[in-house]
Write a protein that binds this DNA or RNA. Sequence first.
RNA 1: AGCCCGAUGUUGUAGUCUGGAUGCAAUCCACUCUGAUAAGGUGGCAGCAAAGGUUCGAAUCCUUUUCGGGCUACCA
Length: 962
Amino acid sequence: MDYKNTVNLQDTTFPMRGDLAKREPQMLDKWTKQQRYQKIREICAGRDKFILHDGPPYANGKLHIGHATNKILKDIIIRSKTIEGYDAPYVPGWDCHGLPIELNIEKQFGKNLEPRDFRNKCREYANEQIEQQKADFIRLGVLGDWNNPYKTMDFKTEAGIVRSLGEIYKNGYLFSGVKPVYWCIDCGSALAEAEVEYYDKQSPAIDVAFKAVDSQEVAKKFDVDLPSGKSVFAIIWTTTPWTLPANQAICAGSEIEYALIYSPHTKDYYIVAANLIESLDTRSGLFKPDGFVFNGQLSTEEVAITWRGVAKLNGYRVAEKTLLGAELEHIKFEHPFYNRQVPMILGEHATDDAGTGLVHTAPAHGMDDYLVGVKYGLDLHNPVGNDGCYISTTEIFAGMNVFKANDKVVEILTECQRLMNKTDITHSYPCCWRHKSKIIFRTTGQWFIGMDKAGSDGKTLREQANKAVDDTKFFPAWGRARLESMIGNRPDWCVSRQRNWGVPMTFFVHKETGELHPESYVILEAVAKKIEVEGIDAWFELKSEQLPEFNLTDYVKLKDTLDVWFDSGTTHLTVVGTRPELQKANLQANEPAVDLYLEGSDQHRGWFQSSMLTGCAVTGHAPYKQLLTHGFVVDGNGRKMSKSLGNIVVPQEVMDKYGADMLRLWVAATDYSGELSISDEILKRVSESYRRIRNTIRFLLANLNDFNINKDAVAFDKMIELDRYAIAYADKLQAKIVNELYPSYQFHLLIQELVSYCSEELGGFYLDVLKDRLYTSKADGHARRSAQTALYHITKSLLGILSPILAFTADEAWEVLMHDANDSTLFHTHHKLPEIDNSDELLNKWTKLQEFRSTVLKELEAKRTEGLIGASLQAELVIHANKDLYPLLSSVGKDLKFAYMVSKVTLDQVDTSSVTVNVSKEAKCERCWHYSDDIGTNQEHATICGRCVENIAGNGETRTFA
RNA sequence: AGCCCGAUGUUGUAGUCUGGAUGCAAUCCACUCUGAUAAGGUGGCAGCAAAGGUUCGAAUCCUUUUCGGGCUACCA
């Protein structure tokens, strides 16, 4: 008889190889047809809500690995909250307005489209981009309301953005002002801080002389008697020659020491910071002629000055007396090429560590200059237009591009002999993040959300935001310091832009005064109603006559649009605040509407911050309870990905090669609080972990194939001890993962626990021990059903825990386990494992038995190396146990040999424990492969042992402990 | 330029606050099984970025350096 057929070898439809790249898309099709997202919403209806609000990616460009990482993390959380028992809807979104899209349309269609056409094209383009990105997101397994995402260009959202602006206006935080803003010539618009990046750029650096209006008087201050026909100059240093037309002052540091120095070349006299004389001379050669040696004789020219500091100053002819900057204040100088007198003023930003210690001051072109200009009442007038060219009234330079004007300025300075030196320097310079081109500072009329302006409730936005940061929980904790300093330091938020594809600032301003219409808040609501129906075109095409209820005759429409950061920064109002499924039934006053925002660490200056500011300005508190940040993705060597390094990992390729679950497992297994490394090797290692998990599941499913929980389950108090232990173990693991690791978002620790559970606890112990019982005991006998009962619970628990991460694999296995091709882990909550009596005791006992087992295994391995045994069943153990060990081992009774997978164990009590391994002299049972002395006892089954006879012909063997 | 973070075998990680033989998993090698088979079991190899300091003792504390990542600011 072939006894192999009597062994319970099961098979499963769950294949060993995942073949994910091919099968995942099929699963997705099925899920879409089933409308799984909607079905889950129905199942979850009535539960407490957990709101993770999606930060909208910009609707332009292909998905990169950073997008994928972010969305996968979000999906893991959404799924984990769902299976934990929350109603966790996920509405993905896109950021749609703004310059990058405009640029693409301009590139395609030129700049001469009608505004309405242009905006329509932008809208179409954004929609196309969204469709592409959406397909990739879905492919990642991200579960969400993909048929109904939010877009910042939805008419309702656009109207909501306008309304949010209205609230901020009403609350007193919005104001218009003239201020220097970052200005990108290529964008033709002001930029937000977040849109500015710094690169090394080359600039001309020039030293320029400003002639004193009254040289004689200035010389006297230095106790110098100026020869007739000689002049005194102040020298400034600048790397932006083009700002000289806007020069209104020279700025000195009040505590800096300034000297008057004579140039043997020009025969004139110059004011420079005393300790910068040498560096100025080094670059200009102005003061110390080659080969000059002071011989104690003074030339006629020099006699005018009382020379005393000469020797000390290495040949520089300097007036002995120096003056502090404060003593130079208000001295008048002539502009180098305009008929304009400019004063010497004082400012803290003037230092003596570079340049000449005197700072050229153009209030229209720099923040410091602007502030000091306001203080001294200087002309703030900005001569540069939106296009980066001087306006028509600018002498000499009218119509010229500012950067091109650099050369012209140099030329003119040379002509009028005011240029003392010119070199090129490479320095870090602010640039537009889109164009990478140099930006300029430009003082223009803009609209701001004030950080330090008290709102209608008497508090400043900065105060409110700081408080709100305190109330927020950060993962990881250092995010708090980051956001705090960000908000502490930021200037007023310039929200106006001068573009076409953006949400308009729907205000009417007075023709002459520029004041907002007194009924602005009401008008704005009227406009919002129109935008809700027709989109932003409603504003751009609006005629005052269409709002007859307001007196608009002396008012004009504001043409500015809003910074796109305002669009995304208000989604907690325009999206979360308006979609019913995202609202909690019992939200308390001042309670954030959203539980979690989750984005890359760059969003501290971006979305985290803009949302915080609008939240505080409109609602007085943060829009979110928790902030979770992840790092950027870098390559296997920790380098950031770049085209030139050729180390870019493309998510689509990973999915085509390994499948989405592999990418998801990679995200989960990586500590994302720092950088996330990815490379081919790393992915290979990840897929090895995956195989381990998958195979464990396969083994579990295979051995449950003939098991029906409703008919075959063994009552828990009747189960074999080892099986009860295994359930207790699984319960403890599940508790840790569900109660600690998922809620604290520490997925990498969770994955470690799970992989080591599959390898060590299950593969290395429980399942290994169980094989004998599963295969050889009576198919529907107590011993086997007890094991299967445990396996069933373990599998159900394991798949639930895995499902947020291995979304595809877990559900694939779930269908097999439940014998239902339409079921999903997410239609259920975490499996409730049966409560096991004395579980701690059991865990403790079997942990000790495992420890001793490894001693046994070492002994077996020694015998194996000696060539005495192969399979461990060839061995018999003689265990001499001391008084601690003996009760432990004997408490497992005759089942100890199964726990240790040998054919026989002899146990006695001694003082010192030891294990002896003997090779069995008995015959091998053809069926169960144990070596036994009762083979052949039964005539009918001459080649198998008594236990096997009982299992195939009797009622099945009895097991109690293992 | 300043500030912050990180670096643990080939890979992913734990341990660092609070000093005490580094640990887990995968890879690799060897043995073994052939009833999880492009599997399973057992054993083995190998690591604290570098240097210095404190200490009986340092992955851990201190200093310096290197490399990587990030942030902030701006040199007019």
